[in-house]
Design a protein around this nucleic acid. Structure first.
Length: 483
RNA sequence: CCAUCCAUAGUAUAAUGGUAGUGCGAAGGAUUGCAAAUCCUAAGGUGUUGGUUCAAUUCCAACUGGGUGGUCCA
């Protein structure tokens, strides 16, 4: 049974969807003002895994995210890059979509853009004014926090508490310093027409208007980084529930920050790694694996050293998958089933449920990876033992093991592809490589180590690694980006 | 100051009211012509203090230390 930690109550709760069999989720995307950094990617990967797992469980998932393409930062950056704000926003939205592919993140079913939903936003603001939750002041519209009884329920604070610790500058136009803008006045020619004059939507209103437009007033999951709990998500709840009179999102999920020597990676602090620079050093798969070795709600410390370790660790899983595929290509020697076989068979059936138990517990990917490693160890020790031979029974069991191994990895978005297949476009290459391997085998039989090593070394230079296993020589293409 | 989360071997991470697992690293061994990969073996751990309990690493409280938020943020 799936349990998720809900920030709304600070508890793990049983997961029950609003509509049976369907999950509607909205994940706060980013302001498209620059290239994405690892913090953004962690969030995207996290919700990608959540989505994949929900789909694995059989839910029909509608996964929605957004691009904030209107605000001061974008205008400022557009000036710096000497292009229109629209063009800049587009450029970085497209860059993000490219980036997520490198990390094997599935695209959202829909990315909503503020600039395309102005009408809905204006309608929502008008309604809030009509219901007495908001007021207009010199072309700005503010939401009155005191008018909404539940204000503070997500971040667990009362209005009084917040006022005491507030760092916010006092604004004369606001009735209460905590009131937030739903609509902001801008100079002529720079904004959108509205009943309150020309202006822009406030930061929080977009997510409310767009999520409700697509998913309805009540939906299942609303996700984002912990740094959005207050004020962003708190304000979203206030304005959405004030607007609809219904519960907004049922489960509020928040991923932890990516830190750099203990401090949050962020644009404003300037201590960030962009996805693109990291991808020059490590594959998206390694980064993904690394980020998933920590529970999503906890902060994670980022460094290249840790990515290096993650790569070694991930390679172990990939090697297992390769050996499994290799073994399954052998001829069956219908030998008898031994005790070792039986023990191995029993193990396989445990793996799936162990993995599911981990993910059921608030999407514990770190635990899931542990199960995968445990599984890999079993497979390795089984197929590498000296008296291993393929019989009819264990062939089908190993096939099943391979299938399960890949299926579980797939939930985490990890794909252990076999490199030989990647060069199948030219059928000649594998044949040529096999020829060289055979020549090397002959050399080895004659103890002509110089020639044998020469072939191995030269192949290595070309990016083809040769390994002599108890089963004979095996080769694989080494991806350049991983070296 | 307030809110909230966290504290596990050298390191990074899981789990659990009763025997604390996994990866990386380091040690020894097996395998190998040498490698690579893999396996086996052993080593090594629950921040401090108190409480609840037959039993606490787990639950509770305080403390200490850290993260995040209280301002733009994923």
């Amino acid at each position: 049974m799936l349990k998720v930690y809900n920030t709304l109550n600070n508890k793990k709760e049983k997961f029950e969807t609003v509509e049976s069999g369907k999950v509607k989720m909205y994940v706060c995307g980013l302001t498209v003002q620059n290239y994405s950094h690892i913090g953004h990617i962690r969030s995207a990967i996290n919700y990608d895994v959540i989505r994949r797992y929900l789909e694995y469980l059989g839910y029909d998932v509608d996964y929605i995210s957004n691009f904030t393409d209107i605000n001061e930062k974008i205008v400022k950056r557009a000036e710096e890059e000497d292009m229109s704000p629209e063009k800049l926003a587009n450029k970085y939205a497209n860059a993000f979509l490219e980036d997520i592919r490198a990390f094997n993140i599935k695209a959202a079913d829909k990315y909503l853009r503020v600039s395309e939903n102005i009408d809905e936003i204006i309608e929502m603001v008008s309604t809030l004014i009509g219901k007495g939750y908001a007021y207009e002041m010199n072309g700005d519209v503010y939401f009155s926090v005191e008018s909404f009884d539940d204000y503070g329920k997500l971040s667990g604070r009362s209005i009084e508490d917040m006022q005491a610790g507030a760092r916010i500058a006092v604004n004369e136009d606001k009735k209460n310093p905590l009131d937030f803008a739903l609509w902001k006045k801008v100079d002529e020619g720079e904004g959108w027409e509205s009943p309150w004059g020309e202006g822009w939507p406030g930061w929080h209103i977009e997510c409310s208007a767009m999520s409700m437009k697509r998913l309805g007033p009540s939906f299942d999951i609303h996700g984002g980084g912990v740094d959005l709990i207050f004020p962003h998500h708190e304000n979203e709840i206030a304005q959405s529930e004030a607007y609809s009179g219904k519960q907004f999102a049922k489960y509020w999920l928040h991923n932890g920050t990516v830190n750099l020597s203990g401090e949050k990676m962020s644009k404003s602090l300037g201590n960030f790694f962009t996805s693109r620079e990291v991808l020059k050093e490590f594959s998206g798969q390694v980064v993904r694996y690394f980020l998933l070795t920590r529970h999503y709600r906890s902060p994670i410390d980022f460094s290249y050293e840790k990515l290096e370790e993650a790569k070694t660790s991930l390679d172990r899983l990939i090697n297992t998958r390769r050996q499994l595929a290799e073994v399954l290509s052998y001829d069956i020697k219908s030998a008898e089933v031994s005790e070792d076989d039986e023990r191995f068979f029993a193990k396989i059936s445990e793996v799936q449920s162990d993995f599911k138990d981990a993910l059921d517990d608030d999407f514990n990917t770190a635990g899931g990876i542990g199960v995968l490693h445990d599984f890999a160890g079993c497979i390795n020790s089984y197929i590498n033992r000296n008296d291993f031979s393929l019989n009819e029974k264990n062939f089908s069991i190993l096939e099943e093991a391979e299938e399960i191994f890949l299926e579980l990895a797939e939930i985490l978005g990890l794909e252990f592809s076999i490199d030989k297949s990647e060069i199948k476009s030219s059928d000649l290459a594998p044949q040529l490589i096999d020829l060289l391997i055979n020549l090397r085998e002959d050399a080895r039989k004659n103890k002509d180590w110089d020639k044998a090593d020469l072939i191995r070394d030269k192949l290595m230079e070309m990016g083809i690694e040769v390994k002599d296993t108890p089963r004979g020589a095996e080769w694989q293409i080494i991806k350049k980006e991983e070296n």
